[in-house]
Structure formats: C-alpha cells, structure tokens
Write a protein that binds this DNA or RNA. Structure first.
Length: 421
DNA sequence: CGTCCACAGGAATGACGGGCGG
DNA sequence: CCGCCCGTCATTCCTGTGGACG
C-alpha cells in the first residue's frame, strides 16, 4: 500500500518517467561517484582563473559512470561561469563533447565538430573583428586551415576550450590529434585547450605513442566497477523518479543489482534490465515487477545491447560478421588440409571464402582480402569477434576467428539488423 | 635449405559524394 | 549549376613472416 489513497490514472502501470532510465540521462546526484566528480572538477578548476587545466584520461569499463561524471561536472562548470558573481575572473569556457564512435572518428571530423559546435559560434564570435566575414561552417578545408581557424577563435576570445572525446579509442589518428590540440597552447597567448579522453579499453594507452600518451595522461582516473550494493542505490534512485511506488519490490532491486554486478558492474546494463523487466510486467497488465520478469528480461537485454552495436556498423562489416556467424553455426572448420578441426573456430582464409559466397547470395559485391582483414580487426576492436594469432603448428600465418557467444544468436541479430529474412 | 603457400598489413592510388566559391 | 578540395571507402601492389615440403 502506498501512502496515497489514490494513484493518478495512468496509461502505464510501472513507469512514471521512462527518460530517467535512458543511458543519456544524467541525474542531479551521482551515487558512488562523488569522489570521481570532485577529482575531475579539481583538475578542471584552474579554468575558472583562466589557467590551463591538465588533460585528463579517464578509463573504466562500460557503465561505470565515466560519461555521466564528465557531463555532470561540465554542466556545473557552465552553471558557474554563467553567473557573474561566481565567475569573478570572467572566464569564457567552452566545452565540446563528442562520442568518437559516431561520426567523429578522425581528427578532421573532430576539428570540424569543435569549430561548428554551437557553443563556439554562439555569442562573441561574430562581434570580434577576428577575420571579418566567413566564420561559420567551413568545411572542404584542409586540416591545417581548420587548425589555424580554431587557434584564432580560441585566442581572439580568450576561450578555455575543453574537448571531451568519449570513446577516444575509436579515433584513427589520435596521435596526430593530440599533437594538434596541445600545440595550440604553445602557439597562442590568451586562450587554452585541454582534453578529456574517455575510454573503456585497457589496451588503448599502449596504442598511443609515448609523446601523446604523456600529454593525454597528465591526469589519469580509473573508474572502478560498481558493486552489487552500489548498483542497488543507483537503481533505487532511478526507480524513485522513474517508476511508480511499489512497482519495484526490494527483492527485484537486489536481483537486478546482482546480475548487473556479474556483468562487470555495468550500470547501463542494470538500468536496461530494469526497463525491460518493467515492460514485461506492463505487457502482462501488472503494476509491479516480479523476479521472473527480471530473469526473462536478461536474454532480451543482452540481445538488445548487441543489436545496438551491430546496427550502427557499416553494412559491409555486418556482412563480414554475418559470414563468420553463418560459417561457425554450420560448424565450419578448415577442411582443405587434413588438420585437426577446432570447435567454434574458423580460419581467416575459409571465412573469406565463405564471405565471398555470402556476398554473392546477398547480391552484394564482396570487398578484397585487404579490406576484409581491416573489417575483421574492426570487429575485434568492438569486441564482436575474437581474433587469435595461430601460433605454431596450425598453419603458416593465419588468424583464428571465434565468436563471443553462440553463432546462431549472432547470426539472428545481424539478420535482423540487415533486414534479412 | 631453399622455395612456395597463405596470410598480415603498409603505401599509393582512384571513385565517390559533400560542402563551398563563383 | 560547375569545378574544387576535402575525407572516406575500396582496390591494387607490395614487402614481410612463418610453417610446409621436397
């Protein structure tokens, strides 16, 4: 029983406000991430005195609040600078956030984004006599010109520019980008640029060259996974705002949190689990979630998450993934030489052959070996396939390809994404 | 032991489409 | 509307590497 006698009539039985469960929602308070938020704001605080803060590299697996914390701190920073009594130094802070996975995978695209971002063009820009007319929207310029342009804008307006690069491991020429952005600080007197890089890949740091590593990692933060009790608080907080009272029994919170903790302490996963559980309950006309809903939602969530990553892949990559799944689901092993067959493993050669015939049957023209290999590596980066160097004994030099889960499942997901039958 | 096979991944180059100036 | 300059995707060519085999 709630303390209210009458609940307002609602179409939905469980959800009051679904937005709250979205991964993009940044709550006013971040449970269990206060010290991280403080650390970030402390590093950034020089910006309020018009001094350059250190670059930050944030590392932590998915759903550990990296993005939320950064957005939260930036939001706070913007609030402070917009109030004259808090912003005594008159600092002009521009923060540009982008997720490098979605369309910002090269230094060019990133520079373009920074320059075209609303916050860079908002007030002030046109008024200053920095270059006369064409200030807005210039693309079709080469990177060095973009660079000069950015320098001018930042310097002429004494901007403290904070570039947030989420999923920074997805940008191809990071080293170039790092060099470019940090060089601005050497070449201009007023104005400064600092970088916040976010990644969930451990290996990323090693991929950087020594120079850009030391610049990016001036300050380093590691976000640890959430424990089950921590996830409980997070879930309870969101349920409080997003769900009707009593829609989520205590036991279900614990269950979802436990499952979330098993899945790398991924809050995003846990929240999605909550959402799907609620939808299941609603679909049966109930007003509260049962443990069975949660269990049933699990599989759905995993498929959903995978589907999301597959869906945004270029079609060619999807076809490559499909070929792998298809071959492995048929138990593909290397047949040409009388070699020991390995369960669930395929060689790059045979997969390429299969890919060619799959492409034909889909009425698409297959790409060359060369690109096929690049796609394979790309899929590995995304964690969709496992590649292993065939060490000794197997064959000259080849790659062993495996899938993280059942080939049939992946096949189905890609089929859905490509719109096959 | 040299040669060939099967593959990895760098470099050069071209086709294509988008925004911009005229 | 056209030509220009860009980035991206893709091909082609190439060099390197390691096991297999006569």
């Amino acid at each position: 029983m709630t303390d209210k006698l009458f609940e307002p009539a609602a179409e939905r039985g469980v959800f009051k406000n679904l937005d709250v469960l979205s991964p993009h929602y940044v709550p006013g308070e971040l449970p269990h991430r206060l010290s991280e938020a403080k650390a970030v704001s402390k590093i950034l605080s020089p910006v309020l005195r018009n001094e350059k803060p250190g670059n930050i590299f944030i590392y932590g697996s998915t759903g550990t609040g990296k993005t939320s914390v950064v957005r939260h701190v930036i939001r706070e920073l913007e609030r402070i600078t917009s109030s004259p009594e808090d912003n005594k130094a008159g600092a002009c802070i521009k923060a540009v956030y982008m997720n490098c996975r979605t369309g910002y995978g090269s230094k060019y695209q990133i520079l373009l984004k920074i320059l075209s971002d609303d916050s860079m063009n908002a007030e002030g820009m046109e008024k200053r006599p920095l270059e006369g007319r064409r200030n807005k929207g210039l693309s079709g310029l080469d990177p060095t010109q973009l660079f000069e342009k950015l320098k001018n804008v930042v310097s002429a307006n004494n901007i403290s520019l904070i570039v947030v690069l989420d999923e920074i491991d997805m940008v191809k020429d990071v080293d170039d980008l790092m060099y470019l952005l940090t060089r601005i600080n050497d070449e201009i007197s007023p104005g400064r640029v600092s970088i916040i890089g976010i990644s969930n890949r451990t290996s990323f740091k090693e991929m950087l060259d020594a120079r850009s590593r030391s610049t990016l990692c001036e300050e380093e933060l590691i976000f640890r996974c959430y424990s089950a009790p921590q996830l409980e608080t997070i879930l309870a907080q969101r349920a409080d705002i997003g769900l009707y009272a009593n829609a989520l029994p205590e036991g279900c919170i614990k269950l979802i949190a436990a499952l979330g903790a098993q899945t790398n302490g991924d809050a995003r996963y846990a929240l999605k689990l909550l959402q799907k559980s609620g939808e299941l309950a609603e679909s049966e006309g109930r007003k509260s979630i049962k443990a069975d809903d949660v269990k049933a939602a699990r599989r759905k969530v995993e498929e959903d998450i995978m589907y999301e990553t597959v869906k945004i892949l270029p079609e060619n990559q999807q076809v490559v993934l499909y070929s792998i799944a298809d071959l492995l689901s048929k138990g593909g092993q290397y047949k040409r030489l009388g070699e020991p067959s390995l369960e669930g493993v395929a060689f790059s050669g045979e997969v390429y052959e299969h890919y060619q015939s799959v492409s034909k049957s889909l009425d698409r023209s297959p790409v060359t070996m060369r690109w096929f290999r690049d796609y394979l590596n790309e899929l590995q980066m995304l964690g969709l396939v496992l590649l292993e160097d065939s060490g000794k004994g197997v064959r000259g030099k080849t790659t062993l390809i495996k899938l993280g889960r059942r080939p049939e499942d992946i096949k189905g997901i890609v089929e859905a994404s490509l719109g096959l039958t």
